[in-house]
Nucleic acid binder design. Structure first.
Length: 940
RNA sequence: GCCGGGGUGAUGGAAUGGUAGACAUACGGGACUUAAAAUCCCGAGAGCCUUUAAACGCUCGUGAGAGUUCGAGUCUCUCCCCCGGCACCA
């Protein structure tokens, strides 16, 4: 009998809907709650795509699994419904965003239900509804009242033809040209507007540090850290000659202060204006400032990085270290918003400064030298010899008299001169004794280098001629012992790009010339690493790390932390967003709208076509409302909020979605949050995650929540590519529509196929023909005959193993291998005339999270209880006997069938019998038996 | 340039340091059928030896090269290539 997916899936979807089967408890047990969340989607007019299906199916399987394990599960869905596409569509067609959005949501909801996803629909929220954005506005007020929201001038991308503000992603034309309007191709200019900011930088440190507490993909954490970009350095003041004004700079390299031969201010730096009277070439300066203003950041970066700038004639600064006068420039390679907006430039030790100095003929002064090889004795080494060489080079030496080794390696300043010594015997491995001793003796933390130490035992010692991937750390592995030199032909050397050295060559190499060679390997004459100071007054001879502190102190500077992270600009000159709850009095002063007037409703009497002002500026209703409530002459704020604001707190709302008094009650938050598992794509989430974490930290600081991280565990689903392994796109016409797949194969098959494709986080191509694999599997399950009488499965361990595997794999979200385990069980059951009772029931139960419709149908038919997740008997996991391989010298020479309780000698004897012909006439040196794994004989 | 993630059959992919290629797709052969579809069974990494043919046997094989180990897809080092993110951040 054929499985009728259409009828059966419909039947169960309707039942689940009517019964509200997945409604979350109002009183979850604290130790048994699980909040499983998907990133709520933007309901695009194109409907659900297969990428959504992947993530949603994974969390659905996990949710159903957790429910079967008797957890109280909260698994909600909502809509990130404000945003640009609906507004752009409105501009084109005049159809109001409300309409298109509601329609899109209906489509999404229908599609999601047709996938059999187990959401609690009683908690559905939409960010565009007044009930929701009332609380988005409340969050604005909350931040404002706590000094975390403020207003200031900021640049926006402006299209002079369309008379509209453009988002950054709208400044790239379809052909990829940057800095132009996406619609009309006009060159985008920069315009200053008063805009609102959230002070996320107040939490910069916590946002970096607390990443250690969460179970997230390492790469996502790294992206967050990079985005925040915390760096430690010094602030140092340079006096301006003949003035009491000072230029404050931020530098991570105060150790190079003596090499600072000029300074650069960002063109927008206030001091440039303050110094106007002293500047002799003001008109040139003014022109340059004007030019910079009209450049977007994209321009600044895209112009080939050719350095430009103008000297401030008549202004000189004094290097506080050596009291020398240096000239001052403005240049757009220095950013106003980072550090102090001014730098001391050290052309000898910074690539950018070097480029600029070359162009403007500014003197270069070297003040840091790479540490040079000083001691390669001809006598035994002494423990305390300053044994050093150049540029992050690794050197390992074998002591030629005492058969001991000495290794040395560093990559950066903090590693400087670390000496690895110790009595390391030939026989030791890097794994145990050596590592331990070396760690204790030197405090050296880099395990990798210890791994390297074991390499010394090997036969080959090489010097790569080319730079390795660190760009500046060629690896030297050498042996000074007399004796074997491998003779290698010139071709061989060229082929492997290695330089083989005899002991004699090595001696030369390691002395005077070694430094020069290392230098020549390195990039030209530029040295940006740490080292030993030269030409730096009393600091000469000091190491960089120490000098940083001491030099900073000597010029009354201070050590500070600086961040790349800027405050979050939330103003959008857009219609389809949450209105910013602010009004202006007749003097133009901003006032927050009192909470009792929320929601501050988005008006509908606006045109969507750009008219040079934010769309809300045209609303008569909004203006009237403002004057009516606040008085004559008052004006409303006409910008709306970035949609990231809406998505920064929605996970709180799901805990208590209908609360009219609070964004969520403390009680509900206490019960459900934080989110236990959060699933979403990796592509656009750096900002979302950062902003959500910021909101949580702000709430925590003011006592609303008791935790600082909203998402305990985060996983990403990968991108699903089209069949030709390119990105799916409407223009290429290679988009797969889930509706079509469901119609053809059913929702269960689609769900299982997407999970079976590969690891959830991997990027993988769609393949329609591969769906037949899981579709066939489901058909075979449906056809499988269940025995009426009780029979034992001959290979009962297969059943126990399947339960174990599927349970562990779902827990780890390795759903592809969980499914293949189910397939193996089915294959096994099909070898029998009829499937034994217990095994059949277990199969259907294990299948339930993956293919809930079919499992429910079969469960109903056979009276199977799907509410309890199966367990397994540990003792049944192992088969009575196993086949293990017999190796001789590591090569497989046969297999042997061994009972579970076979003794080592029995096993080895059985092995000898099998491998007899390989052992004859040889001396057995070693015999290994690893139970359940392998037998290996070492012979010579 | 910097930071991540990868490289395994024709394809998607499996493999706590222990018989590489599970599971599936496509493919080849067979059964059933008037035929096709569906279904079921069997085969299959590359090469060599021998041979009518096969079996047996052997060698090689997880991007390349080296190392550690009784044993490496897995650990260490170097090199090559692909993908993603950031990018004048001092």
């Amino acid at each position: 009998m054929k499985y009728d997916h259409k009828a059966i899936e419909k039947k169960w979807q309707e039942r689940w809907d009517v019964a509200q089967s997945f409604k979350a408890s109002d009183s979850p047990r604290p130790d048994k709650k699980f909040y499983i969340l998907d990133m709520f989607p933007y309901p695009s007019g194109d409907g659900l795509h297969v990428g959504h299906v992947e993530g949603y199916t994974a969390t659905d399987i996990y949710s159903r699994f957790k429910r079967m394990q008797s957890y109280d599960v909260l698994h909600p869905m909502g809509w990130d419904a404000f945003g640009l596409p609906a507004e752009n569509y409105a501009i084109k067609t005049g159809v109001p965003p409300q309409q298109t959005t509601d329609k899109a949501i209906d489509t999404f909801r229908r599609q999601i239900k047709e996938l059999g996803l187990s959401y609690d629909w009683s908690r559905e929220v939409g960010a565009h509804t007044p009930e929701y954005y009332k609380w988005t506005q409340w969050f604005f007020l909350f931040l404002y009242n706590n000094g975390l929201a403020y207003k200031r001038m900021a640049k926006v991308n402006w299209c002079p033809k369309d008379q509209t503000v453009l988002a950054n992603e709208q400044t790239v034309s379809e052909s990829g040209e940057k800095g132009v309007c996406v619609r009309c191709g006009t060159k985008v200019i920069q315009k200053d507007l008063e805009q609102w900011f959230f002070k996320i930088t107040d939490f910069a440190d916590a946002l970096v540090d607390d990443l250690d507490q969460v179970d997230w993909p390492e790469s996502t954490k790294i992206n967050q850290r990079n985005w925040i970009g915390r760096s430690e350095g010094a602030e140092i003041e340079f006096a301006i000659a003949g003035s009491d004004q000072k230029i404050k700079v931020f530098t991570t390299r105060p150790d190079t202060l003596f090499g600072a031969t000029y300074m650069v201010l960002a063109p927008e730096h206030q001091l440039v204006q303050d110094l106007k009277d002293r500047i002799e070439n003001w008109s040139k300066i003014e022109t340059y400032i004007e030019e910079t203003k009209n450049k977007t950041d994209i321009d600044r970066a895209s112009e080939g990085r050719e350095k430009t700038g103008v000297e401030l004639k008549g202004v000189k600064a004094i290097n506080p270290a050596n009291k020398e006068e240096v000239s001052v420039y403005i240049a757009d390679y220095v950013m106003g918003g980072y550090g102090t907006g001014a730098i001391m430039a050290v052309p000898a030790h910074d690539e950018r400064d070097a480029e600029f100095a070359a162009k403007f003929n500014i003197p270069v002064r070297r003040v840091v030298e790479p540490v040079t090889m000083q001691t390669v004795g001809s006598s035994a080494f002494k423990q305390n010899d300053p044994f050093v060489d150049s540029h992050g080079v690794i050197v390992f030496l074998k002591h030629w008299a005492e058969d001991k080794y000495m290794g040395l390696k560093w990559r950066d300043a903090s590693d400087w001169g670390t000496l690895l010594t110790g009595g390391i015997d030939e026989g030791m491995t890097g794994e145990d004794t050596t590592r331990k001793e070396i760690l204790e003796e030197t405090g050296y933390k880099n395990i990798k280098s210890l791994r390297q130490l074991t390499t010394i035992h090997s036969k080959y010692y090489h010097v790569p001629k080319k730079l390795n991937r660190f760009g500046h750390a060629p690896v030297f592995v050498v042996e000074l012992a007399d004796g074997e030199r491998d003779t290698v032909s010139d071709e061989e050397q060229t082929k492997h790009e290695r330089l083989w050295l005899s002991v004699d060559e090595l001696k030369t190499f390691l002395t005077a010339e070694s430094h020069q060679l290392a230098l020549s390997i390195l990039q030209g004459n530029q040295y940006t690493g740490a080292g030993i100071l030269t030409d730096s007054g009393k600091f000469t001879g000091m190491q960089s790390e120490e000098a940083k502190q001491k030099i900073t102190k000597s010029v009354d500077g201070s050590m500070v932390k600086t961040y790349r992270l800027r405050d979050w600009l939330i103003s959008r000159q857009r219609y389809w967003g949450a209105p910013i709850p602010v009004v202006y009095d007749p003097e133009g002063k901003a006032h927050p709208i009192p909470e009792e007037h929320l929601p501050w409703v988005l008006p509908t009497d606006v045109e969507f076509r750009p008219t040079g002002t934010s769309p809300l500026g045209q609303s008569k209703e909004l203006l009237d409302r403002t004057e009516k409530i606040f008085g004559k002459g008052w004006r409303p704020e006409i910008d709306t909020m970035d949609t990231f604001v809406c998505s920064s707190w929605y996970y709180f709302r799901f805990a208590d979605p209908h609360n009219a008094q609070e964004f969520a009650s403390k009680d509900a938050l206490q019960k459900w949050l934080p989110v236990d598992l959060y699933m979403g794509g990796a592509e656009h989430t750096v900002l979302h995650l950062l902003y959500a974490r910021f909101f949580t930290k702000a709430l925590q600081k003011h006592g609303y929540v008791s935790f600082g991280e909203p998402f305990k565990k985060l996983r990403h689903q990968g991108i699903i590519l089209a069949e030709d392994s390119t990105k799916m796109s409407k223009s290429k016409g290679n988009v797969i529509n889930p509706d079509d797949v469901i119609r053809e194969y059913g929702a269960d098959a689609l769900r299982m196929y997407e999970m079976f494709m590969g690891p959830i986080e991997a990027m993988k191509p769609w393949s329609t023909k591969n769906i037949t694999g899981v579709a066939r599997f489901l058909e075979r399950v449906y056809r499988l005959q269940r025995a009426d009488d009780v029979v034992e499965l001959p290979n009962n361990h297969v059943l126990a193993q399947t339960v174990k595997k599927v349970t562990e794999d779902i827990e780890a979200l390795k759903l592809n291998t969980a499914i293949s385990a189910l397939m193996i069980l089915l294959n096994e059951l099909e070898t029998l005339p009829q499937a034994p009772h217990a095994a059949y029931h277990t199969l259907i139960t294990l299948l339930a999270p993956f293919a809930p419709h079919m499992a429910s149908e079969l469960a109903e038919k056979h009276g199977i209880d799907l509410s309890v997740w199966p367990t397994y008997d540990e003792s049944k996991l192992v088969a009575d006997s196993t086949t293990i391989a017999v190796q001789v010298n590591g090569k497989v020479r046969g297999t042997v069938e061994l009972g579970v309780n076979a003794s080592e000698s029995d096993a080895l004897n059985a092995g000898r019998a099998v491998a007899g012909k390989w052992l004859d006439g040889k001396t057995e040196q070693k015999a290994l038996y690893v139970p359940g794994k392998i037998i290996n004989f070492v012979v010579v």
